[in-house]
Nucleic acid binder design. Structure first.
Lengths: 125, 125
DNA sequence: TTGCATTTACGAAAACCTTCGTATATTTGA
DNA sequence: TCAAATATACGAAGGTTTTCGTAAATGCAA
């Protein structure tokens, strides 16, 4: 089980693939370039590197390759989050949660969801 | 208000300074090198760069400089966490909390703390 | 005192990330 | 058909991060 540690750009592209599903480089690029000024070949190169790293796979049947994320969103979130908790919050997820809830807005509805989750966690014990 | 974006090594050194308070390079190095094989001058260089970036200050009265963190732990945690929430969790702190609580152990005592915090947040509204 | 240890400063190598230019192949439409 | 558009591959530049070697200054101990 190898650690997933995408760079900032790679994470952006993964997010696009997670949300869009299968994509050509062109499709990814159009979204990727919405908030940045980057050329097409930059996006292409990033995706090629991600391919060589095993972050994505691609169907090369057609001239225009089709890319797909090879790492799941859930697993990647867990890994990145886990690393942050370990590095920055002394391994305490709860300490991180306190920091997050203390400094970010949350709606009643969202707070309710967390309460529910807490209840579930307690039942599990 | 400038964004604090320490690198991985810088964050490690900041953590040492936050926990130890004032430190010489030697003191930081001894802890920093516990889990890695790095030479003394590597630690020194990192701290010099952090100084030039304004992440730490130093007292140069003595030949052996004394370093101190210039960014607070709380503020740095908020910034780093905020960026992760924005980049990875669609800006939803709650989604991140759900992920964190769902995949990391938490003691009853810790869960209790979170419940308390939730109650406080609800009262504030 | 003199030589060894410790410290800072500095430069530069190595690795990684981001970016783009160019070459080449393929498709398309006028 | 053939030129323009579009795709991939590749190399390399430029920036940042991490690492260390070496030089110079200072402190210490025999």
């Amino acid at each position: 089980m190898k650690a997933i540690k995408p760079t900032e750009s790679e994470l952006e592209i993964l997010k696009i693939l997670w949300e869009q599903g299968e994509c050509t480089v062109r499709q990814v690029h159009e979204i990727f370039a919405e908030n940045k000024e980057v050329g097409y070949t930059t996006t292409l190169k990033l995706m090629q590197i991600m391919h060589s790293k095993g972050l994505v796979e691609r169907d090369e049947q057609q001239k225009t390759h089709i890319y797909r994320a090879l790492v799941s969103r859930d697993k990647t979130e867990k890994q990145v989050l886990g690393k942050l908790i370990k590095d920055m919050f002394d391994g305490s997820a709860v300490r991180m949660v306190m920091q997050a809830l203390g400094s970010h807005q949350a709606s009643d509805q969202e707070l309710e969801k967390i309460k529910q989750l807490l209840a579930e966690l307690e039942n599990k014990k």
